[in-house]
Design a protein around this nucleic acid. Sequence first.
DNA 1: GTCTATAGCTTGATAGAC
DNA 2: GTCTATCAAGCTATAGAC
Lengths: 187, 187
Amino acid sequence: MPVTKVFPEDVDRKLTEVFTRFGYDGASMELLSQATGLKKASLYHRFPGGKKDMAAHVLKNLEIWFLENFQSVIEQENLPVQERLEKALLPINILFEDGARNCPLRMLSACSETPYFQEYIASCFAILNNGFTKIAFQNGMVESLANEKAMEAIINIQGSLVLSRAMSDNSIFKTSMARIPQLLGFK
Amino acid sequence: MPVTKVFPEDVDRKLTEVFTRFGYDGASMELLSQATGLKKASLYHRFPGGKKDMAAHVLKNLEIWFLENFQSVIEQENLPVQERLEKALLPINILFEDGARNCPLRMLSACSETPYFQEYIASCFAILNNGFTKIAFQNGMVESLANEKAMEAIINIQGSLVLSRAMSDNSIFKTSMARIPQLLGFK
DNA sequence: GTCTATAGCTTGATAGAC
DNA sequence: GTCTATCAAGCTATAGAC
């Protein structure tokens, strides 16, 4: 007999899904309840602070996800630089479903509770920035330029995702992702 | 004695402001009422379809704004190409307040009523795309590449705006805007 | 064209049984 | 830990006076 009827990791996945699809204000407790299969009172039992606790939890998980799936790959210094970059871009493509899925960071970065989340959001972007900078630097770029190009890479990811979703055209995202190695000094 | 107590252009400006700051779901009728100085019933008199009509109206105005402030400048073919680009980028900087203001297109492109807006959103992006493509093409770029670079320019605008707002750092947007001429083949 | 007043529903959140 | 039942507040939207 299980302690919980629903596994925490399943709840986390569903919460992320709803916040990413509908944004913070669009994600009602009713939607979150239906998606997770937990009644509202049960969600409050797990997240006493309510909706904003759930969103903060989602972002905390995302930060861990970036550390485990992106940063850790970047830091496999036994592998060639280009191979590390290519391996690190794969989970990014999965995260955004090749352009079909919105960015949870963006969807939670323009609402009334954003100040409550900002630390996590900034941390996720910092992981990406440090990772791309490291790759470009180890590829021979001077550090200031490497950092500039890393920012461009993140801008391309976010911008292309906005356009892909707004125009319902995943190819915009795919094209941008394919440009990143070149942007960081490869080929 | 005026026919209306509040000028339509002032209402439009305030509606745009609220939708841009809070997004569609975050922009309550109460907020829209307070911002415009019109009671809710008066807003329904002007926009019988309610909130979604107001948002659609905002986007319709934005399309006209892009035609008058961006496209018309691009098409001043008596001026040198580079000068036209520089003149066309000025209103873009104003629109986004040098990175301090969110993009209304983005803020209205991920909500439940987005299908209702998509036509206007796509039209605005098309105006930008056609404009940048024309500039790059007239600057000597082959058309397919010009179109690709135009997309990159829009991606840079949207992406840098996402990051500028998420990180509260307008310089990200400013740097990206400064890169656009270079992106389209100048210097 | 704008208002006050209000309907009717949905929201986020809580109490208390099991 | 999950549930049913419920609350007060907020929401979109409407009716009707001026």
